[in-house]
Every structure is written in C-alpha cells, then in structure tokens.
Write a protein that binds this DNA or RNA. Structure first.
Lengths: 335, 335
DNA sequence: AAAATCAAGCGAAACGTTTCACTTTTTTCT
DNA sequence: AGAAAAAAGTGAAACGTTTCGCTTGATTTT
C-alpha cells in the first residue's frame, strides 16, 4: 500500500539507482531533484527501512537489554543511552529481561535476529551467556553496570568494591562500629559491594557478625524484610548500608513503618538515584553513580566497535568514579 | 557471514521452499526434518527477521512511544505492556519522546519506517499528530493515558475528571476547605484533573482563589517550586492535591526541606505509584491508576486491530476506574 | 487395478531497497 | 575545437526470506 521507490520511478521517469542515490544524499541534477522531491511529497513516500536493512546489512538500530525496565536506575540509563544514540542517528530496541536470565537470552536472540547493529546490556547476573551469543553472531556488544572484572568484553561500570569500601568508611568515620549491610548476593555488583564493605570493616578492625549481613535478590522486598529483621535484632546495629536502589527503597519503607527513627535510632546510607534522597525524610545519604557519563561512554564504546571492526584488540574496560551525596540520614556518634 | 537458508539448502539438498515450510511449522518427512535440524544446529542458523519481514510485511514488533522513559509511571506501563506482548510473540521497540512533541513525531516516523505492526503511544500532549501519521501509514495505533475524549482513536485511560473530583471530595470530607492543587496544565490529563478539582470545590460551595491553582509542565521542578510557594502563602491552604507522580515527588521534596510538617501543618494527596506512598514519611495518600490493567487492555485492543482489520468500526474508548490508597498524609480537621 | 485423493517437495517470482560496473552527458583544459 | 576529466544516470544483480502454482509419488477408495 505505501508508495515505493518504484512509484517514484514511474512518476519521474528516472531510474531506481538515481532515486536511491538522491535518497542517500548523492548528487542529482537540480531539475531532477525537484522532480523527485515533488513525487515524494505527492506520494507520501517513506523509505522502507526493512528493505534497506536487507541490503545494507545495517539497521541503524541498537538493542538494549535491561534486567528490569521498571527499575528507575534502568529508566535513567535508558534515557541517557537513547539521547546519545539519537544524536548519532540510531534508534533503540529496548528489551526487558524481567529479572530472568532465560528471558534475557530469549531477548538477545530476538535482537540478533532483528539484526541490530549492536547490543548494550545491563545484565540480570553476569551476562556472560549473552556476550557469547553476540560474539558468535558477530554483533558488537557492551556490558554495563553488572560486568565482572576480566569479563573479556567491553564494559563500563563503577568500581563497586572501592565505592562500597569508601562508603563504609564514611559510616566508620562518623563513629559507627556496628554496621549492617543489605545487598544483592546473586549478581556481580552486589557481591563486590559486599566485599568492599567487609574489607573496610576488617581494615578498621571491627567485627562483622553473620546477622549483620543480608544478601539475597535485588528487590524492594528484600530491602524491606531485611531492614525489619535488623530493627528487631537484640544487638541492633547503629547503621545500615543498602547497596542498591531497590533495596534502599525497601529499607526506607521498613523504617517508616517502625517505631524507630532515622537517624536517631538507626543511620542509613543508600545507593543510586538522586531523587530518592530528597523525597525521604530525613534526606538520605547515598552513593551516586555517574549514570549519564556511564551511558555516554557505553554508547561511544559500542559505536566505535561498529564503525571500525576492531576485533583483535583487547576489550576495553571503563571504570568510572562514584560520589557521595550527603543527606541527614547518618548520625554522628561520639567516640 | 551468518548462515542462511541457502546454506541449509546446500547441506540438505532440499529446496528453499521446503526448508522455509519446515521453519514455519509445515509438514516435512521425518528424515528431512532431521536433516534440516542437524544442518541448523551445525551452521548455527538463525532466521533473518529482516528478510522475513520484507516479504511477510509483518515484523512481529510493536512500537511504543512514551513521553519520558525515566518516569516511573512509564517504566511500569512498559513492563506490563512488554509482558503482555511477549506472551503473544511480539517484541517491542521503545522510543522516548523526551517530553518533546517534535521528538515524538520523529520517533513515530522512525517506527513507521521500521514497519512495526502497531503502535502504542503515551503522548507528550494529545498525540493527535501521531495518530494522524499512523492512520495515514495504515498502522494500527492505540493511545494510553493522555487521550482526549472523542479523540477518534482507540484509547485506554482513566476518568481523569471523576478521579480528581472524588479525590478532592476525600479532602473535603475530612474537613478541608482551603485546598490547593498542583497540576500539569499543558496536557490532557492535567487539565481534566484540574477540572474535576474545581467541580468538586464548586459543588461543595468553596472558593478557589487563583493563588491556590498551580498549573505548569509535568515535572518534579514544578511540583517543588509550587509547593514552596504554597507553603509561603499568607493564607496557607490546609491541603494540597498533586495530580501526577512527578509533581507529587517534587512537592514531597519541598515539604521535607521546609520547617512545616505533613500532615500537621499541611495535608497532602498525591497521584500515581504505590511505592512512593510507602517511602514517604508519613505514608502518602494517593490516587492509584490500574496500570497493569490499562497496559493489558491497550495490548489487547491493538492486537485485535492487527488481527482483523476493523477499520470501519468506530474507535474503542476504554475507561478504567481508579482507587484511593489511604496513607497518613491527610489530617482530619474538626468542623 | 484404475481412479481419485493427499502429502511433500520444487522452481521461480516477489518483497523494496542498494550497489556495481558501465554509459552518457556535461564541464574543463589546452 | 577536440581531448580529457568529471558528473550524472542506468540496468541488473543482490540481500534472505516467503509464497504461488505445479509436479511427483504415495496412499486410499471403489
């Protein structure tokens, strides 16, 4: 039903090749240019990207795989990724892995079959299987956020261990010795952040009893349930470190519902997202990732790979710094 | 580089037609079936959806246009839309309009050129231009959330006016007479919700002074700035109604930063999103939209249109009910 | 056993572009 | 003015599928 290049050919008497050339910015005689342009207008011609993609083998589309699209963290990442890609003339095909590795792989296959020019993935766990699939299909891929060290794949992320170590040190610096942690124990960032916490504690010479560590899935529920348990502990910690956005949300909910107050009864240090910090009362102190910068770097990296096929080069690993957003959720304890 | 159906033809000695038939679930001799299957395994064959799409004129892909992907409201909608579509074997191409109508139209064009089978749009303003584009291209389209009445297009949304009217009545019922509203005045839902508020106030016989109405763009900043102004008013209202998620966020931020407390000094009633209600302190009372139901209905509507081309039928307008989530952000005022 | 039916397979055309290797036309140079 | 160079245009093949109309061979029916 929609007009094709052939219809324009009929109308103008020019050949397909000439019209195609015009469409792709080539030089055409001024008179022919006018001819083509009016035909396009009259016929409401729009290029069929499917047909074009078949021959150019380029779809000008990047696939993005996120572990959960309803996570604000991913939403923000996606916004910046989209902005950066749009600038370069790429569209993006977003897939929600729904926190499930199997769905993630199904989606990766979907993207590969859709012949995206490249893939950015914020993995459910490690993403190694997806990397393998993409490599096998010859599709450039870049990992974000949850990418293990030496993953043998281009990736951009923060130094999770170091960020957590520094964050823990902030708590220690304010006189806290009994510090609990709620983290996700099933994916790379959570494990690393927990490591950083333990390291800081050990370095400072403090105990880390088992009941101060709450590792489970990355979810609001886990944050909520864990904080409930922490608040009910006979030997309650004075501070809690929550190592991602969802967990922070859940923990805040639990404290709000309790009789206890922050920071008087319990100090809190969260992770990710600026807005939450201002919405909570008191304002939450948080470790903040440079999401815009991360997204732009990921796009840059990917587009670089697409442009010139540097396949032999060793993978690029970009590690960005985090910063601490100071709120009023940490009490200073007199030593 | 990737294997094609022709490679399988070489390997098996069968014709393209037969292999294609197998690929699409047709009947083939058991021996040939095995032949094809092993060839697929060995060659790591994956169907090229681009080529397939060119001939079938179906991409099994739905385009979704959201006004802002970093809005949690849209993230949640997208999750449910994705879930529903996946079940039916459709992928989704998500575009972020970035709160800009021009970008929205560019994205719509992108989707149409990518030959998506249908489009779901959560418009920046009204979406009428996009509807027109889709209709012209013969692509089925469904509007969500911000769709005016009698928009001559399939759509699913809540009854914005009624929801706001009822919400305002809740405040009135608790003894409030001086009620301010912060709303978005530039898109359909905001205008309607403001209407509902005014209606409720008029019906109850209360004044609505100009300085109690804050209409501007849908943003956190607007919520924040407006609440600041409201709190500084010489004749401060006793309650504020915030008519969408971002505005609610901003308003909460402003109150948190002030000397005043909710609900003692100011009562608050928000809109959208369950989680926020638990994260704030005190728990926020909110008008809640049935986002899952809305999403599923939209998908159902769209897929219905795609299946059997009912073009002559009059557009379907689905209006869903909202509910009130009770928190502790509204003070009961003695009359 | 012949006729009729059915299942499986096949070749070729089609989908709407781009691109390659030429040809024709125009411009520039001496 | 004529040759050389540059610009513009062209026909045909290619991209990887599906599908249409047919043929072939097997099975069932009478």
């Amino acid at each position: 039903m929609p007009a094709t290049i052939k219809d324009i050919k009929e109308r103008t008497g020019l050949s397909l090749a000439t019209i195609s050339k015009y469409l792709n910015g080539g030089n055409v005689l001024p008179e022919n240019k006018i001819l083509i342009e009016t035909a396009i207008k009259e016929l409401h011609y729009e290029v069929n990207e499917i047909a074009r993609g078949l021959v150019t083998k380029q779809t000008k589309t990047i696939g993005v795989l996120v572990y959960s699209i309803e996570s604000l963290f991913n939403g923000t990442l996606l916004k910046y990724i989209g902005d950066a890609l749009r600038k370069e003339g790429y569209g993006l095909l977003i897939c929600d892995s729904n926190q499930d590795e199997e769905t993630e792989q199904k989606n990766a296959k979907f993207l590969i079959n859709k012949k995206v020019d490249g893939i950015i993935v914020v993995p459910v766990l490690y993403g190694s299987k997806v990397v393998e699939m993409a490599n096998h299909a010859g599709v450039p891929i870049v990992l974000m956020d949850r990418s293990p060290e030496n993953c043998d794949c281009d990736c951009v992320r923060i130094d999770n261990r170091m960020s957590a170590l520094r964050a823990t040190n902030v708590l220690i610096g304010k006189g806290h010795r009994k510090i609990a942690i709620i983290c996700s124990a099933k994916e790379y960032t959570g494990i690393e952040r927990c490591q950083g916490y333990k390291e800081a504690m050990t370095l400072a010479g403090f105990d880390v009893p088992e009941e101060y560590i709450y590792g489970d899935i990355h979810s609001i529920e886990h944050g909520y349930e864990s904080m409930k348990k922490i608040l009910a502990l006979p030997d309650r910690p004075t501070a809690v470190f929550m190592t991602n956005y969802e967990i922070t949300l859940g923990a805040v909910m639990a404290v709000n519902e309790s009789e206890l107050g922050c920071p008087d009864d319990i100090s809190m240090l969260g992770f990710d997202d600026l807005i939450l910090s201002h919405v909570t009362n008191p304002a939450m102190s948080m470790v903040v990732q440079p999401m815009k910068n991360m997204s732009e770097k990921a796009v840059e990296l990917l587009l670089g790979k697409i442009g010139s096929d540097r396949k032999s080069e060793t993978p690029m690993e970009i590690v960005l710094p985090t910063r601490l957003l100071e709120g009023n959720s940490i009490k200073e304890i007199k030593m």
